[in-house]
Design a protein around this nucleic acid. Structure first.
Lengths: 107, 107
DNA sequence: TTCTTTAATCGGTACATTACGATAAAAGAA
DNA sequence: TTCTTTTATCGTAATGTACCGATTAAAGAA
C-alpha cells in the first residue's frame, strides 16, 4: 500500500460521521443497505450523506452494487484489513529505530 | 478512545508528509530531533513543516520537549498503539454483524 | 549588551471539505 | 405513457487545509 493510499484511507476515516456510516452498514449486513437507509440514521441531509459515502467509496473502503432503483453499499473488509496491516507495518518501521530505509514518495 | 479522537488522529495521519515526518523522527531517535532536522529532509519550507508538526502534536501522536534553543520531538508510541487498538476495535464491531456490544472490560 | 539560531506564528493565497437545498437521471409502478 | 422513489450531482456558502515568505520571541554565544 503506497503512502498516498494510506493517507487517503486515513482521511476517509478521519470524520466521525463516516465512522458511523461504516457502523450503520455493518448493522444492516443481512439486508442490502442503501443511501436512504443510512440517511434515516443520521441527522444529515441526503446529499451530505451521499457525499460522505463517496469519500468512503473513493478510498476503496466500501463497495457499491446497483440493485434495482437503489444503490446498495457493503463494507470492504479486505481493504480495511489491508489498511490495518499497513498501519502495523508503519508502526514496526517507527519502533525499529536506528536505520530505516525510507523511500520518500514524491510529495 | 472517543470517535472524535480517533478521527483527529486519523486525519493527522492522512497526509503523506506527516507519515514521513514520523519516519524521520524515528530514524533520529538517539539524538534529539528538532524542526530544522525534519525540514532538511523534506522539500518544504520551515513554516510548513512546523505546521505539520503542530497537527501531529495536537493529535497527540508526538511530544515536544524544549531543549535549549530548540524544540525536540519524539513519537508517542503509546498513543499510536492506542489508535491501533481503537482501529482493531472498530473492525471487530464492523465484522460482528447485527448489534455490536462494545467494551465489556470490568475495570 | 548585541548577534545568531531556532521555531512558532502571522498574513496571504489557493484549494479542499462540509454542509445545505435543488435538480436531474434511472428504474420500477401505475 | 406518467408518477414515484432513489440517489448522484450541481450550486453555493462557510470553514478548513496546505503552502509560502516574513516576522516575532526565546535562548545561547560573542
Amino acid at each position: 500500500m503506497r503512502d498516498d493510499d494510506i493517507a487517503t484511507a486515513m482521511r476517509a476515516l478521519g470524520h466521525p460521521v463516516r465512522l458511523n456510516i461504516l457502523r450503520i452498514l455493518a448493522t444492516q449486513q443481512q439486508s442490502p443497505c442503501c443511501c436512504s437507509d443510512v440517511t434515516v440514521s443520521l441527522p444529515l441531509a441526503q446529499s451530505t450523506v451521499s457525499q460522505h459515502i463517496k469519500v468512503l467509496l473513493d478510498a476503496g473502503l466500501i463497495e457499491r452494487k446497483s440493485r434495482g432503483t437503489r444503490n446498495c453499499y457493503t463494507i470492504r473488509h479486505d481493504r480495511l484489513a489491508e489498511l490495518g496491516a499497513a498501519y502495523t507495518g508503519l508502526l514496526a518501521g517507527l519502533t525499529g529505530g536506528p536505520v530505516k530505509e525510507l523511500e520518500m514518495d514524491p510529495v
